[in-house]
């Protein structure tokens, strides 16, 4: 056979053996960027801030009933980690590694580690099915990924109930998380899409970014829960319906219409501005609260929070 033809056939064979889809490598140490939704993520959301959340009536009442003492009084909450969806919002140093089949060189899975709560995820890329409904749920759920061009689409089920925002907006164990991972050189963007039939009237879509940081040294997470606040055994701090005195604070501090802070799908879109009521209190003349929050440590330096 003509050597040129043989080389061509060989090249063809190699190309056929390579998966037809893209395989972007997300491996590396990624440092989170907090420029997007900063105050919500660090230092964290205010009580009563449901802005941008397509909540249903049930989720809103659950959030209204939330008493922040709960995370101290209910000891089991002290070490409760962020689940896979909220983990992307939190204190998210992120390490990604690949697991490759040494024989076939196929990608079996991506593994992620976040030192905040020591969260470990596996994103299976080998086409395995999700477990049946009766299988255990976990904080990080069960994830599988597929490629759409250079975008990795991850579907996560079997999540434990957790929170959509850590101010009492709960998520249910019936939610499905879809993520879209895209790498642009040293930047990673992850768009999350949460469908929660129990808490939301439409999907909750958020985006987060990281920058590649090869020198990042992730820490180990320790947590051991302890009684922090004396309380009656089995107490679950909660506000009775209509009796939470803190719900108006966020609207008043930032000069927002109270109705808008209550969330709901109708408040998400630009058309809402046409019907949005005026705030009860005007916005402050200059920033007074959490003005610079791109780094966790400086969040309270520019304007101390008003006394409660």
């Amino acid at each position: 056979m003509n050597p040129a033809i043989r080389i061509s056939i060989g090249a063809l064979a190699i190309s056929l053996a390579t998966p037809a889809f893209a395989q972007i490598d997300f491996s590396g140490e990624w440092a989170p960027a907090y420029h997007e939704d900063g105050p919500e993520r660090v230092p964290g959301p205010e009580i009563g801030d449901y802005l941008g959340m397509p909540l249903n009536e049930a989720a809103r009442l659950q959030a209204d009933s939330y008493d922040a003492d709960r995370i101290s009084v209910v000891n089991e909450y002290e070490c409760r980690p962020h689940s896979a969806d909220y983990g992307m919002r939190g204190l998210g140093d992120l390490r990604v590694t690949r697991e490759i089949n040494p024989t076939t060189q196929d990608l079996i899975a991506f593994h992620t580690y976040m030192p905040a709560w020591g969260s470990v995820r596996t994103i299976y890329m080998d086409g395995r099915p999700h477990p049946p409904d009766y299988a255990e749920h976990t904080w990080q759920g069960f994830s599988t990924g597929v490629w759409d061009g250079n975008t990795l689409i991850i579907t996560t089920t079997h999540l434990k109930a957790n929170y959509l925002r850590r101010n009492g907006i709960a998520s249910s164990d019936k939610r499905t998380l879809t993520e879209y991972w895209a790498r642009h050189r040293d930047y990673l963007t992850v768009v999350t899409h949460v469908v929660d039939p129990v808490m939301l009237t439409e999907p909750l879509v958020r985006s987060q970014n990281w920058t590649l940081d090869p020198g990042q040294k992730s820490q180990r997470m320790f947590c051991e829960y302890q009684p922090e606040v004396p309380g009656a055994p089995g107490a679950v701090p909660n506000h009775l319906p209509g009796a939470n005195p803190f719900l108006h604070e966020v609207a008043d501090w930032y000069g927002l219409p109270y109705e808008a802070t209550r969330g709901g799908a109708n408040t998400l879109y630009p058309e809402y501005q046409l019907t949005m009521p005026k705030p009860d209190k005007p916005p402050p003349a200059k920033c007074e609260r959490f003005c610079v929050c791109t780094v966790l440590q400086d969040c309270n330096l520019h304007g101390a929070p008003p006394p409660r």
Binding site: V74, E76, Y77, R80, D133, Y134, A135, E136, H137, W139, K160, A161, D173, G234, V236
Partner: peptide, 12 residues
Amino acid sequence: RLCDEAEVVEFR
């Protein structure tokens, strides 16, 4: 389904 403490806490 099979659970652990976390689900009992939510239920309680």
